[in-house]
Design a protein around this nucleic acid. Structure first.
Length: 387
DNA sequence: TCTGGGGTCCTAGGACCC
DNA sequence: TCTGGGGTCCTAGGACCC
């Protein structure tokens, strides 16, 4: 499966892994390889994944006391108060999700989120296993900790692992044997939490309520080079429109906006990036976001690079949200935005939009191999034919 | 032609205050 | 020789996650 813009590979079946396709491989290169001619490449389809995720969430809520969605395809489950064989219970949940929601899953068991994540990774990498791995007991963990690299632990990224490798810390066992103050020196307070979690001391408790968003951003790469200010203005309006939708969906209003852009970092053009942040009157009204007062200074500052011959690669509009809906004319604004959102929900995003926002600009995102929205669009329902 | 997008948290350093 | 100390807030940048 491909990233947004059909850019690179972000998910692979076992068969694709066997063919040597790597995570992050650029699609425009791998698709041309002769031995990969038979591979089915799919564009990402977030409407479909979001709907499947919701179905899985609802099913899980019927089986366990606490379900905390972590990402679109991962949930932390709290087994608090459940008696009996938790491995058997996990297998039962997994079979139910498979049968009802048609989603294959793996379950990792552990006393902390970090251990559960690691157990899940172990289950997922066992191709012929049963899909459940239990690391609840210290004895079950010791062999795993000795054999697995510290980089496979949740929260331990490339930069941290490189620093640890310098002092000879490679396995998870090496890592948890480190003195705490050395760990803090190298990885700051974040790095102190992980070894504790790995030893069964919970530092990241399950929370029942989803946190309020601290920022909302809309970022897209262009499907082709964009070099004129007119097209940039169009793109900013389009991004602001999407940002407005997100704000209203979450009942938030923006108090500041940032516009960010940069050139393509994969070609030889001189690299350039610039960002402008400005405060705005709190709003979630698309029209006010598009006409934000900072736009004049924005143009002045960003246009420094106009006239250069390189292409801008991506653009981001982000907003600092607050949880209210004030506006200069709240009733009228809310009525117009409700109508806008209602029509777009019913007839598809972009049906009704500000006059200066194009529906399908030719610099827009590419999605050549979109899988159908089987579950969220009546025109794309799966059809079954008997022979 | 073509190399993703949307988040979170932490730190360091500067400005400012009393 | 010696040039307050303690606090807040903001921003930029780094690291990490899926």
């Amino acid at each position: 499966m491909l990233s947004n813009n059909d850019g690179c590979v972000i998910a692979r079946s076992w068969e694709a892994k066997d063919l040597g396709i790597k995570m992050g491989d650029p699609w425009h290169i791998v698709r041309k390889k002769p031995h990969l001619k038979e591979v089915v490449w799919l564009s990402s389809n977030y409407a479909l994944y979001g709907d499947m995720s919701r179905r899985m969430y609802e099913l899980l809520c019927e089986h366990v006391p606490i379900v905390e969605p972590y990402s679109i395809d991962e949930m932390f489950l709290g087994f608090h108060g459940l008696q009996g064989d938790l491995v058997a219970h996990s297998k039962h949940i997994r079979e139910t999700v498979r049968r009802v929601a048609k989603i294959p899953t793996c379950v990792g068991l552990g006393p902390t989120n970090t251990i559960a994540k690691l157990a899940n990774a172990v289950a997922k990498n066992d191709r012929h296993g049963e899909g459940v791995c239990d690391l609840s007991m210290p004895e079950a963990r010791s062999a795993i900790y000795r054999d697995m690299a510290v980089g496979s632990v949740w929260g331990m990224g490339g930069a941290s692992c490189q620093k640890l490798a310098h002092i000879g810390v490679n396995s998870i066992a090496d890592f948890i044997a480190m003195p705490a103050d050395l760990c803090r020196d190298i990885l700051t307070v974040v790095g102190l939490r992980t070894p504790k979690e790995l030893q069964g001391v919970s530092c990241l408790p399950l929370s029942m309520a989803p946190p309020v968003r601290k920022g909302i951003s809309v970022t897209r790469s262009f499907g082709r080079p964009v070099t004129t200010w007119e097209e940039m203005t169009q793109a900013i309006a389009r991004h602001a429109t999407r940002a407005g939708e997100k704000l209203r969906q979450q009942g938030l209003a923006a108090t500041a906006m940032t516009v960010f852009m940069h050139t393509n970092r994969f070609n030889n053009d001189p690299s350039y990036s610039n960002a402008v942040t400005f405060k705005i009157e709190p709003t979630s009204d698309t029209r006010q976001l598009i006409n934000a007062r900072g736009k004049a200074s924005l143009e002045r500052r960003l246009s420094i690079c106009q006239g250069r011959h390189h292409a801008r690669r991506s653009l981001s509009v982000s907003a600092l949200p607050i949880p209210i809906f004030p506006s200069r004319d709240p009733d009228k604004s809310a009525a117009i935005m409700n109508a806008l959102d209602g029509i777009n929900l019913r007839y598809g995003r972009g049906t009704l939009r500000p006059a200066n926002v194009q529906q399908n600009p030719d610099w827009g995102t590419r999605r050549q191999n979109m899988s159908p929205r089987h579950t969220t669009d009546v025109h794309e329902i799966l059809q079954v034919t008997s022979l």
